[in-house]
């Protein structure tokens, strides 16, 4: 019973951590689906959103605003910052590069990364800023069934809930709205989408805006977990294996990929660690991604790539 309790605890914490990886991976998927661009800047956008949020929040609280009002205003402010970023990226980077090769666009997002990272730290500072949106203690569940119960961290549960709301919202947006239909149309065929009156510039702004808002959501959770700091940009590296496993073009893939990576690395750490040494958590996801690449290069949920020769 102790063993099973331990297993459950590791599994649950792994799955919840995985949801948080999915939050970051989602931003990549959205942009890749709609424009075929791998957005290297997604991690930087999480940092920018987090900094804008925490710095404006601290300032308003210091000026005596009630905490809930300050949170609302800070979220609005951070969303505005992401909207301005989306506008600038479309206007000055992607707009002029319309109809260019995918690799060119990818390179341009590397440039965007440096500008966002530098700009964000110049505007908002480069220290570690603690963010307390969610409680950071833990619950002990099922104390009757298992000795000591199962430890579940509250912030991970919050992250899971928020991710669920976000995914439902995104699904409704993609399936039910005119703009969502237009996004799917652009993802399938640029020329045909333009011919029915969809403006590519407008769609790209929308996509980067949505990815920016997803980055903001990720920043609220990760910022509370780790504090808002530069190393948050490295989350993008953790999102890579998630994307490879789930498939670059699939929203459900990003979720499932995140769950697999999260649960996989925690279980591997707990059960393989004693035999082959600790620290498995840091590389397990990449090995998993490598295996998926060999067996199913398009990822579990990705579109099959069939090329005629």
């Amino acid at each position: 019973m102790i063993l099973f309790g331990q297993f459950l605890e590791v599994l649950v914490s792994g799955l919840l951590a995985g949801v948080l990886y999915s939050l970051v991976a989602l931003g990549f998927v959205l942009i890749f689906k709609a424009s075929g661009v791998f957005n290297f800047a997604q991690g930087a956008m999480v940092l920018l959103a987090g900094l804008a949020l925490v710095r404006s929040l601290d300032m308003m609280v210091a000026n005596g605003l009630p905490f809930w009002a300050a949170i609302m205003l800070a979220l609005l402010f951070a969303a505005l910052v992401m909207a301005i970023t989306a506008f600038m990226v479309e206007r000055f980077v992607l707009g002029p590069l319309i109809n260019q090769d995918g690799l060119t666009l990818f390179m341009s997002t590397i440039g965007v990364t440096f500008i966002i990272e530098g700009g964000a730290q110049m505007l908002f500072g480069s220290d570690v800023y603690p963010l307390r949106l969610f409680p950071s203690d833990a619950w002990f569940l099922f104390e009757d069934s298992f000795p000591g119960g199962i430890l579940v961290s509250k912030i991970d549960v919050w992250g899971g809930l928020i991710a669920a709301v976000l995914v439902v919202g995104l699904a409704l947006f993609f399936q039910k709205t005119k703009t969502g239909r237009a996004l799917r149309a652009v993802a399938d065929d640029h020329a045909a989408a333009q011919s029915v009156g969809i403006s590519l510039n407008w769609i790209w702004f929308i996509v980067w805006l949505v990815a920016g808002l997803v980055a903001l959501v990720a920043a609220t959770v990760w910022g509370t977990k780790l504090g808002v700091q530069f190393s948050i940009t490295f989350l993008a590296l953790k999102a890579l294996p998630v994307l490879i496993i789930g498939g670059f073009t699939s929203v459900p893939g990003a979720i499932v990929g995140g769950l697999i990576v999260g649960a996989g690395e925690k279980l591997a750490e707990a059960y393989l660690g004693p035999f082959i040494g600790g620290g498995i958590e840091y590389w397990f996801a990449y090995v998993l991604a490598l295996v998926v690449l060999m067996a199913r290069p398009q990822g579990l949920f990705g579109e099959r790539i069939i090329e005629r020769i």
Partner: peptide, 10 residues
């Protein structure tokens, strides 16, 4: 379009 250009996923 000359070669059909539909939104293939829809």
């Amino acid at each position: 379009f000359q070669n059909v250009a539909l939104f293939r996923g829809m």
